[in-house]
Simulated scan of single mutants.
Amino acid sequence: MDRFESMAMLVAAIDNGSLSAAGRVMHVPLPTLSRKITELEARLGTRLLIRGTRKLTLTDAGVAYVAAARRILEQVDDAEREAAGEFQTPKGELVITAPVFFGRLHVLPVVTDFLALYPEINVRLLLVDHNMHLIDEHVDMAVRIGKLPDSALYATYVGPMRSMVCASPHLLATHGVPTVPDDLRRFPIVRVAMPVPTPGWQFRSPDAGGVVDIPVSPRLAVSTAEAAVQAAIRGVGVVNLMRYQVLEAIQAGQLKPLLEPFELDPSPIHLLHASRGQMPLKMRCFLDFARPRLQAILA
């Protein structure tokens, strides 16, 4: 029996919440994965998992064993990377993810300059608007916009990003200019459709010192920020987007910022990576290369 393989399957089962989910992540048939864990328990002479109908629960022995297995697997992973030279020479594949619009505008130019400087590193840049799971999906580094939840990941702050409400000069000429957030109730709205829709837009309340929610009903809902910008330029409605998404249209006079005194605090942008042992040199080189360049852009 491959003990390391069985350890990895057990850890994957706990991290993913079920044997079937772990099997999908590891591309292993469920009966094989279940048998491997059962064989591991038999070898150890103790039960590690309580397999309930809804979730997996570790026994006391399982808690201790999984903690030790994580350390062992991380040490083996680091040893393999070191043997391959990733800790002495910046080389190998680097997997980076970023939001689509921000990635195209700002991350891609940084990556192309980085590749010119490090000929032994290859980059796979994944531009998606959902948060990928760094460990499960084998991602080395992520650009994240917004407040981060508590996790066992390392985050490097690179700068702030405002959200801005904008509309076309034509729309404002037709409907007037809103002076307070509540005025938006009489305006057509363009929204980017989210997996979990929010009831409205939030603004700072200068008088109350808190936050107010303004319910908005979209005249048009689209799937990307770029489509929302184009719709707003055409006068379909008001948009509420990140500054980098509307900056070009504002500079061209196609959109006008609105309600700036009521904006919420800017969202932080971080470079995120897993805190797993020693960092491979390819990741350290990219972090040191990308951080000052992104900071200059956001400044």
Rank of each mutant, 00 (worst) to 15 (best):
A208F: 00
Q75F: 10
R3P: 00
M132T: 08
S275H: 05
A116K: 14
P119S: 03
E137I: 01
S18R: 09
A68I: 02
M1L: 09
T179Q: 15
H106C: 03
H175T: 04
M1C: 05
Q278P: 03
A142Y: 08
P266S: 15
T32L: 02
Y118C: 04
T32D: 01
R70S: 09
A67N: 13
D113N: 14
R35E: 13
L94F: 11
A208D: 11
Y244M: 14
P197Y: 02
R35G: 02
L127P: 04
G146H: 10
E120A: 12
R234T: 09
L258F: 06
R70L: 08
A83N: 08
L264P: 09
A173I: 02
L220D: 01
R276F: 02
C285L: 00
K36Y: 07
L134I: 05
V76F: 09
A68S: 15
G45Y: 06
V222A: 06
A227Y: 01
F102C: 05
P181H: 09
L94G: 11
T97Y: 07
V76H: 09
K36D: 15
D129V: 03
A22K: 14
P257K: 05
L271A: 11
H175L: 12
Y244E: 14
R54P: 04
I96Q: 09
V66M: 07
V63R: 15
V238T: 05
R144W: 08
W201G: 01
R219M: 07
S267K: 06
A231I: 02
R24C: 04
V100W: 00
N131R: 13
A13V: 08
L126H: 03
V139N: 12
V177H: 07
L105G: 01
T57A: 09
V165W: 00
D265M: 08
R291T: 15
S34N: 13
A208K: 10
I50Y: 10
V107C: 02
L148F: 07
L49D: 10
